[in-house]
Simulated scan of single mutants.
Amino acid sequence: MGISDRKEREKQEMKRLIIDASMRMFLEEGYEKTSIRNIADKIEYSPGTIYLYYKDKDELLHEVQKEAFDRLHQNLLEKAPSKSPWKRLEQITTAYLEFGHAQPDLYDLMFIIRAPMNKAEESGWKNGKACFSYLLDCVQECIDKKLLRFSDPGIAALSIWSMCHGLVSLNVRCRMKVMEQDEAAVIKMIALAVQEYLRFIKA
């Protein structure tokens, strides 16, 4: 291995260390306490070392957000594998809801907190592309087989995503308390609402 290869490997290893520490801190202590200085303390390096790789907290959290979307994408691949496009669509929505309920802090970072998107404005946002493409491809298959009332796959995918996202977001941000139900009942209610919506848009 040459010097340049070794330096690149060391660079990637350091970035991995920083991202892993950032992810743990974000999940355990929340957005406000996740700072460059606190992350540096966790990995026992100076803040200056982290600034060699990330210019600020927003850029770092953008990378952590990417990790979160990679997890969601893997989750969709594992839990929504059906060869039937309609069945796969049902599996996608179920997997998405389950991920949001199980990972509320990550969901917040992915879809609600503004900070990571400051970086996205500079370079374009690619973090959610694989997940949306998985939904979009499935929706296109459903339309091709005349299983959906929609004719435009983009509008259909956006509609389905918005339905799921809206319900998960309400729950993540504790707005479903208006229903005066316990958490288990709320999660069941959300699943039933999405199932009802899918029945409504089915051709």
Results as ranks from 00 to 15, higher is better:
residue 192 L to D: 14
residue 52 L to P: 03
residue 172 V to E: 04
residue 109 L to H: 04
residue 104 P to M: 08
residue 131 C to G: 03
residue 180 E to P: 04
residue 119 K to Q: 11
residue 119 K to I: 08
residue 26 F to I: 01
residue 10 E to I: 10
residue 156 A to I: 01
residue 179 M to H: 12
residue 186 V to M: 14
residue 43 I to L: 03
residue 180 E to A: 12
residue 101 H to L: 06
residue 63 E to C: 06
residue 17 L to C: 10
residue 163 M to R: 04
residue 21 A to N: 07
residue 88 R to E: 06
residue 11 K to H: 12
residue 17 L to D: 09
residue 192 L to S: 14
residue 109 L to F: 04
residue 194 V to I: 03
residue 178 V to S: 15
residue 22 S to Q: 07
residue 200 F to V: 03
residue 14 M to F: 09
residue 112 I to G: 02
residue 57 K to Q: 05
residue 30 G to C: 02
residue 41 D to T: 04
residue 185 A to V: 08
residue 165 H to L: 01
residue 133 S to F: 11
residue 140 Q to K: 15
residue 187 I to H: 15
residue 66 K to E: 02
residue 179 M to D: 11
residue 134 Y to E: 04
residue 23 M to K: 15
residue 43 I to H: 03
residue 24 R to F: 09
residue 90 E to R: 07
residue 180 E to F: 13
residue 107 Y to W: 10
residue 27 L to E: 08
residue 95 A to L: 02
residue 191 A to E: 13
residue 127 N to D: 11
residue 55 K to P: 04
residue 44 E to W: 09
residue 113 I to A: 14
residue 165 H to P: 01
residue 91 Q to S: 02
residue 58 D to S: 04
residue 52 L to N: 11
residue 40 A to C: 08
residue 53 Y to T: 03
residue 181 Q to F: 15
residue 11 K to P: 09
residue 179 M to G: 12
residue 5 D to L: 15
residue 46 S to I: 05
residue 53 Y to P: 00
residue 106 L to Y: 04
residue 46 S to W: 06
residue 117 M to P: 06
residue 67 E to V: 04
residue 169 S to I: 07
residue 28 E to R: 11
residue 100 G to N: 00
residue 15 K to H: 02
residue 85 P to V: 07
residue 184 A to V: 05
residue 123 S to W: 14
residue 157 A to D: 03
residue 29 E to S: 08
residue 35 S to W: 08
residue 130 A to V: 06
